[in-house]
Design a protein around this nucleic acid. Structure first.
Lengths: 159, 159
DNA sequence: AGGGCAAGGTCAAAATAAGTCAAGAGAATT
DNA sequence: AATTCTCTTGACTTATTTTGACCTTGCCCT
């Protein structure tokens, strides 16, 4: 016996299959009517089946012509990826290596150009503060750079 | 099905594309007639889609030869836009206000959810370092937060 | 100068649609 | 049988778009 939640979840998955695209846009109200349930049931489906932890990102808009957009993120296997990053970045990383890694990730379309730029801005900012404000030695800045880079990438991967 | 607001907004964007110029001049009344809506709908489109946060400035004139001019801030105008961000962010900003601003920018689609998340991660990282590592007082962290936020937003604005 | 008309501006109400939260119902586990 | 987890429901909240009534501004014409 399938729960309604499972039925709706499966239906949304078929939408992804059909569209062969990494995103699906739907109307909460219409979906609810289609399955004869209350609208907030859709929220439950999304919470329980299309969460960030499961590799989906949700955008929505209320009001007239409102919508719900479900985006499938590229990294389905978050934990593994996060672990991979730990190895990749290590606990210290030079400015050059950090930049190389970001360039590679952009090439693979794991991050957008804007996201890459933003990461570089944040890293450079931390670096300059560390040097100019606190007079940190290079090795300390390398570890802090690694930490920030990992935080950024892991959050993107898992969210 | 798109909202009228989106249709009109998209239309204005095509005007920018066509003219390959950084400004567009239009008549509120004519636009409203073209899309079969009430004139004040145009004001709503401008407010919600062509706000300063999204890189546009609006000038208008009433009376006999009235017009609405939408100017897109471009690379050349970057200084001006950066100045505007200075005003928006100020030279000190609380964690809450920073988050509110980012939420607003995301709602207006000036930043993606991932970008917003990344910005929040970078801000929180700096904050924690400032507190735990360097014992910075709140006011100092507020100014550093403003600096970083502005750097991030300005860099995205230039993209 | 003053009045008329032709813009554009403001504001708020109505219409529409999504989000939250918690209580209740069912299933599964111990 | 009790407990715990999942699912369903609905009342209440928040957000966006659409519409219209009324206000302001500026040109033009006596």
């Amino acid at each position: 016996m399938n729960s309604l939640t499972k039925v709706i979840g499966d239906y949304i998955v078929t939408l992804f299959d059909d569209s062969e695209d990494s995103e699906v846009v739907l109307s909460r109200k219409d979906l609810a009517r289609k399955f004869g349930c209350v609208p907030s049931q859709i929220n439950y489906v999304l919470r329980s089946r299309f969460s960030p932890e499961q590799g989906f990102l949700i955008q929505s808009q209320r009001g007239g012509h409102g919508f719900i957009r479900i985006m499938q993120l590229r990294f389905a296997d978050c934990d593994e990826y996060a672990e991979h990053l730990e190895d990749l970045v290590g606990n210290a990383v030079s400015e050059q290596d950090a930049r190389k890694l970001l360039a590679r990730l952009q090439e693979r379309e794991a991050v957008t150009p804007r996201e890459r730029l933003m990461a570089e801005v944040a890293l450079r900012n931390q670096d300059e503060n560390g040097r100019a404000l606190f007079g940190l030695p290079a090795y300390k800045r390398d570890t802090m750079r690694a930490e920030l880079l990992k935080k950024i990438l892991v959050s993107l991967a898992m969210f």
